[in-house]
Nucleic acid binder design. Structure first.
Lengths: 356, 356
DNA sequence: TTGAAAGCGGTACCAT
DNA sequence: ATGGTACCGCTTTCAA
């Protein structure tokens, strides 16, 4: 059997408290006794106080949990997520706190709920988890501090937030395209509906999107185009099964291969936009000349590709989320952080041209 | 005060065991009672069984800890690490297990040790942590399963391993350069010595490197060149302060600005190699023509840059590490996995040319 | 089907 | 400086 504190205490002939102090409060006992205790512990193969028991007693886990949209590994697939996590990691490690990536399952919601309930953490960071997902409720009912990466009103009061004005951001992108003369555009989304399939979407309006971010981004575009008489039904909306380059290319194909090919493609993420550019290339089309493309996030890959996109601070979004979580401000106003966005114009957008 | 199992039990008028069963073993009590318990719990704001207490009692944490070379955030900075973690994440999440990134501190070793001791996990994955680091000893003494990403003999018996033959890999790269006529080469390392400064290194031999991986990779190159009479002292060794592109460029500068400029640069990682290519570009030199460059890892950025490098399986290295950890094989032979490497020749290497 | 009791492995207050 | 004693919150035989 694995030795415990008691084992060591008995062997040395002291009390548990003293052994405990030998580890956690060296100043509470004579150096000599401490040395003897530590030596005996080593001899017995005692590894030091058990982490779980210590956490239970101290009431502190020393880690914050991170929840991702879909799966745990998505954290290492999406370039924006990686940047965000870098920031989050920097903030928490400064504090000696760890990061627990919680395994959510796409197939088994019960498993996800269990994972959230069993997570030994002091707080949670929620990265784009759909509001209807059961794990979110499980998470909130734990009563721990929670920070989300969306800036929105319809959440439990007091929840920490760090986000951007998604809608205003895409409005800027839409105005840019409008100014370039574009009137026939396609929207590339990644709504991750239960059975996400790549293909055209026929929705009554932006409000039908299931994801907050998707809803907001699409709304921004729709608003701007509506102002000039281009209604919702005039927009070509194509959903991508996943937020990946390949999926973006597939989705873009649906728009590009239409008889009334759009002159511009507005993608909800850079990954989708880069995929759209791949699709253009495959058809011998040049971004910014034949068809304009915009993205969202400004991931590192965007600049070399010449992608016009909305930049949002990735790393600092993570850092701020971490700081908020580790030391939640009292003032409600400080519990919600709105970060700036900026439209970065590159070569992938240009004047609308008539089709040759 | 937060409600506990007891609170709920008292409120309903049953015992703790029954409430516990209501959550963990629904079949052990009448559906009706269970419903009443759950309703009361909700009313009381009871969030369900405490994660830490449950872990303690069950003796299972539901997570594996991950240790990184330097800091936690490095996990999201190094492209190879990101790929590795993706694989690891995929493996563990399949099992419903989480990933706890343990915060190591560069400055405060005691803090790192504490972080390892307090990590609530069922096992550890060690990613390139130097063997002399105190946290490693703390980790091993916990007696949990451990998997390391290096294939080597001088570790505690039974430790799980998944790695590559680093030395053989760089031997292949060196032979490639040799075949192209290169005799005067520079080595770019990232030994992360305590006070890592970028600059020339004057070591007695490859054995002086503090890191296993560095030692092995450099040894491979040295061995091959020694065979043709190019000794250790003929090699230009420059250390980079960090494993980053910028640092690699800085280090490469030391080699490139010498009077006897090397005709080839062998970098210990792709990041350093890409930095070296940056340094070449800054000097108007063309990789593969003026100076050849090789890297290690074959990260995604390597191909577009035309970098000749050693490929090692990044994602599957992570997957295998995870599988090993979650279900350690009995057979000692299966506890150590040697993965293949492959030299990928691209445009960054070419025939050695006399300096113009 | 439900409950009593015994831990899981420690920590920290309060005496001595 | 050291020890006694609760107690952290839950799970799990085992008995009723």
């Amino acid at each position: 059997m694995r030795p415990t504190l008691q084992t060591v205490a008995d062997a040395v002939g002291v009390s548990r408290s003293t052994v405990s102090n030998a580890y956690g409060r060296p100043d509470q006992l004579s150096p000599e006794l401490r040395a003897r205790i530590l030596a005996t512990a080593k001899e017995l193969g005692y590894a030091g106080p058990d982490a779980t028991a210590r956490s239970l007693r101290r009431g502190r886990a020393g880690a914050v949990g991170v929840l991702f949209t879909t799966t745990l590994s998505y954290a290492f697939v999406d370039p924006f997520a990686v940047l965000f996590l870098r920031g989050l990691a920097e903030a928490v490690e400064r504090n000696g706190t760890g990061l627990l990536l919680v395994p959510l399952s796409t197939e088994d919601e019960a498993a996800s709920v269990a994972a959230v309930q069993n997570a030994v953490v002091d707080g949670f960071c929620v990265y784009c988890v759909p509001e209807w997902h059961g794990s979110l409720e499980a998470l909130r009912s734990r009563g721990l501090p929670v920070v989300t990466t969306e800036y929105r009103d319809d959440v439990p009061a007091g929840e920490l937030q760090v986000g951007v004005d998604e809608r205003a951001a895409t409005r800027a992108a839409a105005r840019h395209l409008l100014g370039l003369g574009h009137r026939r555009i396609a929207l590339l989304t990644n709504d991750m509906a239960p059975k996400g399939e790549t293909g055209p979407l026929d929705l009554a309006g932006p409000g039908d999107f299931r994801y907050f971010v998707e809803r907001e981004r699409v709304s921004g575009v729709a608003e701007v185009f509506a102002e000039v008489g281009v209604g919702w039904d005039d927009l070509i909306v194509v959903n991508a099964a996943a937020n990946s380059r390949a999926s973006g290319a597939q989705a873009a194909a649906h728009a590009l291969d239409r008889a009334d090919r759009p002159t511009a493609i507005v993608a909800c993420t850079d990954l989708l936009a880069l995929g759209a550019m791949d699709a253009l290339a495959a058809r011998g089309l040049t971004p910014g000349r034949d068809v304009s493309v915009t993205g969202f996030d400004d991931i590192p890959e965007a600049a070399p590709a010449g992608l016009t996109t909305v930049r949002q601070p990735a790393v600092s979004k993570g850092t701020l989320a971490g700081e908020l979580l580790l030391d939640p401000p009292e003032d409600p106003a400080e519990r919600r952080l709105l970060l700036p966005t900026e439209l970065i114009v590159r070569a992938s957008t240009g004047p609308a041209t008539m089709r040759r």
